[in-house]
């Protein structure tokens, strides 16, 4: 008799876990809160992915296609796990969707509930939503995805654009002390895309550190050396309105020790990643631990980053912390392997 495994979350990690389990002949129930699968990349219409600028569709579209093209996966759209109980070494879960509620016994569970983009409006100094021309990286990604790549305020191409790194990250004042890991790389990627799209538009990146870790560094070098993107050291303390429909970034150039107030046509906030409201919810429902950053806590961060503190419940993707899509996909596979092993052992 085939195993039954519950996957919560239909982003890159959840989809990869589901499709791999399906190939092993496992019956997968995929619970997705949205009316579509593909997670944040789909929701915010990511267009090109770092580091190689391949179309997001190559990755996300591929995973969606695999999931939806038959096999042993049942996708529950716009659904949630409304009730969850341990049953010996197995689990009884009730899945609630528009079609009603369904209670099933699962051999193991994979939690891949992902992250949420930090909402820059929560940090009012950046004047997000106050000025049309202050957007964040997910907005820009969507604008590029929709081929609508202009200044929101007047539909004109921008002449100069500033990226502000570490928005909602590495900031005790908003409650997030951690680094969101990908925003630097996303920013340099978008800076390159901006420069390619508008060769006359100067692009600046205000940074405290630039953390394009590993090979993502290549993109950072490219941004500077091939596209003349200028980095300026200093965090931006305030965004105000400026002359001629501009927005002014007020900051300190920490390398020259001088204050500046520079007007820009457009400001892009590199907002970070958060555990979102779904992390505490699923933590409570499934009885698994939450960490001090608001993400789900692995049993052992180094030895078994894909295991929760509860036997039989596994973790994958950005629900355990900020990470790149490739890492989420890797973890989806790792969690699938472990969930399958657990299910077979306790058959």
């Amino acid at each position: 008799m085939a195993e039954n495994i519950l996957v919560v979350g239909g982003g890159p990690a959840g989809l990869n876990a589901a499709t791999m389990l399906s190939e092993l002949g496992v019956n997968v129930a995929l619970v997705e809160r949205d009316s579509f699968i593909g997670g944040n990349p789909k929701k915010f219409k990511y267009k090109f992915l770092f580091p190689d600028m391949q179309p997001a569709d190559n990755v996300i579209g591929e995973l969606i296609k695999k999931t939806e093209s038959g096999g042993n996966i049942k996708v529950y759209y716009s659904s949630e796990v409304s009730d969850f109980k341990e049953n010996g070494k197995k689990f009884d879960a009730t899945i609630k969707s528009a079609e009603g509620s369904e209670t099933k016994t699962f051999d193991s569970v994979i939690v891949a509930t992902g992250f949420e983009h930090f909402d820059p409006a929560r940090d009012a100094k950046y004047s997000y939503q106050l000025f049309d021309d202050v957007i964040d990286i997910k907005d820009l990604e969507r604008m590029m995805g929709e081929n609508n790549f202009v200044r929101p305020s007047n539909g004109q191409p921008p002449k100069n654009v500033a990226f502000i790194l570490c928005v909602g990250s590495r900031d005790r004042h908003v409650g997030n002390q951690y680094c969101s890991r990908v925003c630097c790389t996303v920013s340099v990627k978008q800076a390159i895309e901006l420069r390619e799209h508008f060769p006359d538009c100067e692009v600046y990146i205000f940074y405290m550190d630039i953390r394009t870790y590993g090979f993502f560094e290549d993109l950072y070098w490219q941004a500077m050396e091939e596209h003349d993107v200028q980095i300026v050291k200093g965090r931006i303390a305030e965004i105000t309105s400026g002359p001629d429909n501009t927005v002014v970034c007020k900051g300190e150039d920490t390398l020259l020790r001088g204050p500046f107030e520079i007007p820009f046509d457009m400001v892009v906030l590199a907002s970070g990643m958060e555990g979102g409201s779904q992390s505490p919810e699923i933590s409570k429902k499934l009885g698994i631990e939450l960490d001090e950053h608001g993400f789900l806590k692995p049993e052992n961060i180094t030895l078994s980053p894909f295991k929760s503190n509860k036997a039989g419940i596994f973790l994958a993707g950005a629900c355990t912390g900020p990470k790149a899509i490739s890492d989420s996909i890797t973890e989806g596979a790792a969690a699938a392997m472990n969930a399958y092993t657990y299910a077979v052992k306790n058959r």
């Binding site: 100069n160 100067e202 600046y204 630039i210 500077m224 050396e225 003349d228 200028q230 980095i231 300026v232 150039d253 001088g258 204050p259 500046f260 107030e261 520079i262 007007p263």
Partner: peptide
């Protein structure tokens, strides 16, 4: 307070033989 970045200067330097790699500096 500095109120602008003047990139014309950067371009002038980048166009010279000796300054051609100014865009690389981090």
């Amino acid at each position: 307070v500095d109120s602008e970045f003047d990139r014309s200067f950067f371009r002038e330097v980048k166009d010279t033989v000796v300054g051609s790699r100014i865009n690389r500096c981090w």
